[in-house]
Measured scan of single mutants.
Amino acid sequence: SPEEIKAKALDLLNKKLHRANKFGQDQADIDSLQRQINRVEKFGVDLNSKLAEELGLV
């Protein structure tokens, strides 16, 4: 269901964000992850996106 997909995506992105902060990645990478999280919260996951591929939806 779209809600489950959204939850999985947010979980994955939050893990990536945590790792980025923990290991001191570029601020641009961290900002990009934050924008992705905001986009998923607002609009859900686009099944044509790279994120959908990472989640194994495509």
Rank of each mutant, 00 (worst) to 15 (best):
S1D: 12
K6Y: 03
K22E: 13
N21I: 15
N14R: 15
K15A: 13
G24E: 05
E54A: 05
N38A: 14
H18D: 15
K50F: 09
N14W: 15
G24L: 06
A28S: 11
A9D: 00
I5R: 04
I30N: 03
R39A: 15
N48Q: 09
L33D: 01
F43P: 00
D11G: 06
P2S: 13
F43T: 04
V45C: 03
Q25L: 14
E53W: 14
D11S: 09
D31I: 10
P2W: 14
I5E: 03
R35D: 14
E4V: 08
Q25N: 11
A7S: 10
G44E: 01
Q34A: 06
E4C: 13
A28K: 13
N38E: 15
N21W: 12
R39C: 15
L57G: 03
K22W: 06
F43M: 07
E4T: 10
E54D: 06
F23H: 11
L57V: 07
L12K: 05
N21S: 08
Q25M: 15
A20H: 04
E4S: 09
N38I: 14
F23I: 11
R19T: 11
K6V: 05
E53I: 12
A20T: 03
A20F: 11
E4P: 04
K50W: 11
L13D: 00
S49G: 07
K42G: 04
Q34S: 05
S49K: 02
N14Q: 13
Q27T: 08
K6D: 02
Q34C: 09
R35Q: 13
K50E: 12
I5V: 09
Q25P: 05
F43Y: 12
L13F: 00
D46A: 06
S32H: 12
L17E: 00
I30A: 05
S49W: 03
E53F: 13
K8H: 06
K15Y: 08
L33N: 00
V45S: 01
K42W: 06
V58G: 08
F23K: 09
D46C: 07
D26H: 09
E3T: 06
L33I: 15
V40Q: 00
A7F: 11
V40R: 00
G56I: 03
L47E: 05
D11A: 14
R19C: 14
S32L: 14
K8Y: 10
Q27S: 07
K15S: 09
K50T: 10
Q34W: 08
A20E: 03
D31W: 05
S32I: 12
S32V: 10
K6N: 04
R35F: 10
A52L: 07
A28Y: 10
Q34D: 03
F43C: 10
I30F: 03
E3D: 13
R39D: 15
G56F: 06
I37D: 01
